[in-house]
Nucleic acid binder design. Sequence first.
DNA 1: CCTGGCATG
DNA 2: CATGGCAGG
Lengths: 308, 308
Amino acid sequence: MKRGKKADEAAAEGENDSASAKKAKKSKEPEPVVLYDDPPDKLTSKDGKDANLKITSWNVDGLRAWVKKKGLDWVREEAPDVLCLQETKCAEKDLPADITSMPEYPHKYWAVSDDNEGYSGVAMLSKTEPIKVTYGIGKEEHDKEGRVITAEFPKYFLVTAYVPNAGRGLVRLDYRKTWDVDFRAYLSDLEKQKPLVLCGDLNVAHLEIDLKNPKGNKKNAGFTPEEREGFSQLLAAGFTDSFRELYPEQTNAYTFWTYMMNSRAKNVGWRLDYFLLSSALVPSLCDSKIRNKAMGSDHCPITLHLAM
Amino acid sequence: MKRGKKADEAAAEGENDSASAKKAKKSKEPEPVVLYDDPPDKLTSKDGKDANLKITSWNVDGLRAWVKKKGLDWVREEAPDVLCLQETKCAEKDLPADITSMPEYPHKYWAVSDDNEGYSGVAMLSKTEPIKVTYGIGKEEHDKEGRVITAEFPKYFLVTAYVPNAGRGLVRLDYRKTWDVDFRAYLSDLEKQKPLVLCGDLNVAHLEIDLKNPKGNKKNAGFTPEEREGFSQLLAAGFTDSFRELYPEQTNAYTFWTYMMNSRAKNVGWRLDYFLLSSALVPSLCDSKIRNKAMGSDHCPITLHLAM
DNA sequence: CCTGGCATG
DNA sequence: CATGGCAGG
């Protein structure tokens, strides 16, 4: 039957985000909603320097829909120096004029999936012109889906990434493991030239603290041991999870909520979006924010303040 | 290129409904909009009998969307004895409760396309219970797409149909010709038992008066000589086009407008929806209405008043 | 320019 | 439960 698919989806999502629902079945009590109030931005680094670089990253889940939902109004308010977007799902020729004509960001870069223009895709918009911009991670097998843009600025590289989802039933977990190895190699190699900032949807919640229902999701995309280990290896390679660096104990801080089951209202979410820093940049870290009030996607934006 | 399709569509629709656009190009003048004001319902037949049977037919272009757009509110206002719907595009299990639970119509019948539940499909809802209801026209090759429901009432058969579209580029015109022959045979055969009313989207504008741009559409689905001839044959077989019977000279009376190019606002339309009557029922004809103010689909509803 | 379904998340 | 693309009209 054709309609079987809906049931599959419900089941998969049920596993994903309703470990608590099972508990609720026993206790017959709805789980209390615990929100996360992102504190005011800190605009000085530990060593007292003023923030002078602001980067925002947002998985927009379809740029055209996100523009219609006034995502750009939020961006203008936030006014980062660099804006990184993931899951644009849009061919360059179909980009809305609202974004292509944005005067605040004269330097715009787009990566699109080769075969399916409505799949994946990332973008970077900058107030200042980068020295150089490259696409992909230099491996044919990974560079067909428009997942990575790297911009070289005078003092750092900025890499934005939309890491491959392991998929329903983990159908693409093997590929993801290969990706994780190669992407880490790419970043380590790049870092030899100058320090880097990596941002984007890394499609993994690292630790149990990074999602609402760790117990129920150990076999689901985004929280398998393999994906978590991949993230651990990235830290072991010398990169720092800026949010966790500043807020090591902070619970209920998420950047993604499935559209299903009213998850966002209940703050049943995942922290999938990150700013990772080369160790040389950690002293410059002022703040790493989760803008969980911003609507327009199933992810919220995150913002980094650095004092360079 | 993937995106070529949009251009194709625009071209096809351009041919369809913009013969006037070409003229406009020459004259550099926009065509004046001429609307059709359906006159008040006549509720007596020629021989002075009072109307006592009201039938409404509507191609809803997706029943679920149409329900969301408050199509049922209009139906409740119109309150026909029998409601016929075409292009329901909905499996029975996916029907909105709003319609399945409608107490005004305790007798409900659904025909759905076998392979593709989101394609075609017709329905009949009745206040009184028919003696018998059948589906299709008794020919395997035509009865897989949920296009015909026949209800036997004491004094007449009611047949509702969604006639196959000949398609862009007339890809299905050959099939349509076969359909027209077999459907006509079905109706003629049925009529031997008792008189019938045929209603629905017959997917043809019969004469030049039945569409805005006859000149530009002679090679387009819905106005090819073959389809028009099929309709003529139906009349030759003894059926009467109730609207044209009453309003032989009425121009600008349409039941369909493409969603494209703002056609409805400009009344650039087609008369594709009909009530056809067995000759025995013509004396009972009170009125045949085009409800062109009713919104919710790219077709408007039509209503028949009979004095039985 | 709309519909419903599909793959994807 | 959203996205974009597709077939169909």
